[in-house]
């Protein structure tokens, strides 16, 4: 019984002192083989389903290929790209997307952080409150979109009904140019405020208590404590959440599709939705591919930014 135990504890010392190169190398080799065998299936799937399609899109973006017309694709080189970058329509969609992303993410951040701050100051019922607040985030965009479409309906929607009983006028939330984009922002904010709240809460609860205690011994004001302790410590995490939301909002498609279908007119057409129209309703596959590649470039830049901050956070 004691023999094998002493043998195993002996072993590392012996191996270290003798350092036989051959077994070490062979183990290293088998490790490497194992790493390749374990990683490559996952990478192959990604190559087949993400990288290859994107490369194909890149190729198509230099041609005038159309998925319905068929026939051979002719190279037009940068024709698609210059057409998109010069297009007034695209500029309009870019502006819509910008308003949407900035508006929604700002609202979410302010609201989400406020809720997180209020929850973090409670001592009881934190778990229950957090759970309840998180519900919207877990719902599918389809459910969220459909349901808000029902609630915002101009005739029998509950929002207008409540406004009516308050003696206020009716609003055509989704069918009027000025309000449709605003409604979209509100719905997105409703769904994703919990996301910011969740991450801000994680940051807030991680702030060490002794810092506040030290500050209150110094009789520091509430605002001073918030500004000098809370905010600097939560900010890096909050920034990650904000960037994450910005990327998600930029690529958003399903909510627009369900809620407004880009209308009325083109007032809620984001870039994602426009790409879809060019590709699947206009059947200009080549142009749509170029459009998509440009969007991917923006996403890559945002992702790089996100990963850089993430790295910074992890190193601290």
């Amino acid at each position: 019984m004691s023999d094998p135990v002493s043998l195993t504890t002996d072993h590392p010392g012996q191996a270290a002192s003798a350092t036989p190169p051959a077994p070490g190398r062979s183990r290293h080799l088998s490790d490497r083989w194992l790493a390749v065998a374990f990683i490559s299936p996952a990478l192959l799937l990604l190559l087949a389903m993400s990288v290859f399609p994107l490369l194909w899109a890149l190729y198509l973006s230099f041609t005038d290929y159309s998925a319905t017309r068929g026939g051979p694709a002719h190279f037009v080189w940068f024709g698609n790209y210059t057409a998109i970058l010069a297009s007034e329509q695209v500029h309009l969609r870019a502006l819509t997307t910008l308003i949407y992303v900035v508006g929604a993410v700002t609202l979410q951040t302010v609201l989400g952080f406020t809720i997180a701050y209020l929850i973090s100051r409670r001592t009881r019922g934190r778990g229950l409150l957090t759970t309840l607040f998180l519900i919207p985030m877990m719902l599918s965009p389809v459910v969220v979109g459909l349901f808000w479409r029902f609630m915002l309906d101009a005739q029998f929607g509950v929002i207008n009904s409540m406004l009516g009983s308050l003696g206020l006028g009716q609003v055509e939330w989704l069918t009027r140019q000025q309000t449709a984009l605003f409604s979209l922002i509100v719905v997105d904010t409703w769904q994703w405020t919990p996301f910011i709240m969740l991450i801000a809460l994680a940051g807030l609860t991680a702030v060490p208590k002794y810092l506040y205690e030290a500050a209150s011994i110094d009789r520091a004001s509430e605002w001073f404590r918030f500004r000098t302790i809370t905010l600097p410590l939560v900010w890096p995490l909050l920034l990650i959440a904000v960037l994450f939301r910005a990327i998600e909002a930029f690529r958003l498609f399903d909510l627009v599709y369900i809620l407004t279908s880009g209308g009325p007119g083109v007032s809620t057409e984001t870039l994602s939705f426009h790409v879809y129209k060019v590709a699947f309703l206009g059947f200009n596959t080549g142009t749509a591919s170029a459009y998509g590649i440009l969007m991917v470039l923006i996403v890559i830049i945002l992702t790089q930014l996100y990963l850089r901050y993430l790295n910074k956070l992890k190193e601290d």
Binding site: I39, A42, L43, L46, M49, S50, V51, F52, P53, L54, W56, A57, L60, A67, I247, F250, R251, F253, S272, F273, V275, Y276, A279, T285, A288, S289, G292, I293, M295, V296, V299, I300, L302, T303, L307
Partner: peptide
């Protein structure tokens, strides 16, 4: 780099990816 590449594939706009996937 590999890990970052892996994560960034997850951030691709679905509407853009679906065009070549559809053709494929």
């Amino acid at each position: 780099d590999q890990l970052f590449f892996i994560l960034s594939t997850r951030f691709m706009p679905p509407v853009v990816v679906v065009i070549p996937i559809f053709l494929m």
